[in-house]
Amino acid sequence: MDIKEVIVVEGKDDTFNIKRAVNADTIETNGSAVNDSTIMQVKHAQEKRGVIIFTDPDYPGERIRHIISQAVPGCKHAFLPKKEAIAKHNKSVGVEHASISAIKEALVNVYSMSETYESDITQEDLVIFGLVGGKNARERRERLGEQLKIGYTNGKQLYKRLTMFQITRQEFIAVMEDIVQEENE
């Protein structure tokens, strides 16, 4: 599988694992201290070939994703479910621990962000489906993010993520109904 865009990852081990799964070029941020040189590389890559941000499904990975997205508009995003990125030996989380099939799946399901999309999902929908403020809200958000392939978010970020990735109310409700049904089985 060839990837035209340049993939932004956190480190060398991520690059190694991505290259096991697909034919792609990467830019490594070398952790969460994203410097000006890295931002310039990403901007150049975005102008020439496009960029896919593919960071770890944890707080530092989300921080890097946010920094790059703000500095370089128009990047695409690939997300790994946390359970697909956990090392068996020490429980650390990262792209470097993901299987080849999980990496391919994430790269097939990339999202483009939209700053202008008007979502028909409401904050009330999030409450009705128990995604904010409820006892199982975190687990439901994890499952929603996994099924929609948009990554995990906290309650405050969820609406923004759904809007940014242009998830329709119909898609949202279909996935949430499946999640609720699975919980009741």
Rank of each mutant, 00 (worst) to 15 (best):
S112C: 05
T153S: 12
R143F: 00
R65V: 03
I27P: 07
L80Q: 12
D2F: 13
K88Q: 13
I53A: 00
M1D: 07
V6L: 01
Q166Y: 06
M40R: 14
Q46L: 07
E177A: 01
G94S: 03
V22C: 04
Q147M: 15
E62C: 04
K12F: 12
T26I: 00
A24S: 05
N30I: 08
T26G: 01
I39S: 05
Y159I: 14
E171Q: 15
I3A: 11
V108W: 12
L126N: 01
T29I: 03
T29C: 11
E84M: 13
G74E: 06
H44V: 15
Q170D: 14
R65P: 01
G133C: 11
L158W: 03
D36A: 14
N17H: 04
P73Q: 03
E182T: 14
P57A: 03
M40A: 14
K91D: 06
A98L: 06
Q157F: 08
A87M: 02
V51W: 03
V22A: 11
K135I: 11
E183K: 14
T163Q: 11
G61K: 05
G61N: 05
T153L: 02
R141S: 10
S101E: 15
R143I: 07
G31S: 00
A85I: 04
H89F: 14
V51L: 09
F16Y: 14
H89A: 15
I100F: 02
H66S: 12
V132C: 09
V108Q: 13
A106W: 00
L158F: 01
I53W: 09
L144F: 10
H77S: 02
M164W: 08
A102M: 05
M40T: 12
S69F: 10
G134I: 04
Q41W: 07
N30T: 02
L126T: 07
N154M: 10
K135T: 13
D25H: 08
E177Q: 15
E183G: 02
K135V: 14
I67Q: 12
N23S: 15
N184K: 13
I53T: 11
F54W: 04
G145A: 06
D125H: 08
K160C: 03
P81G: 08
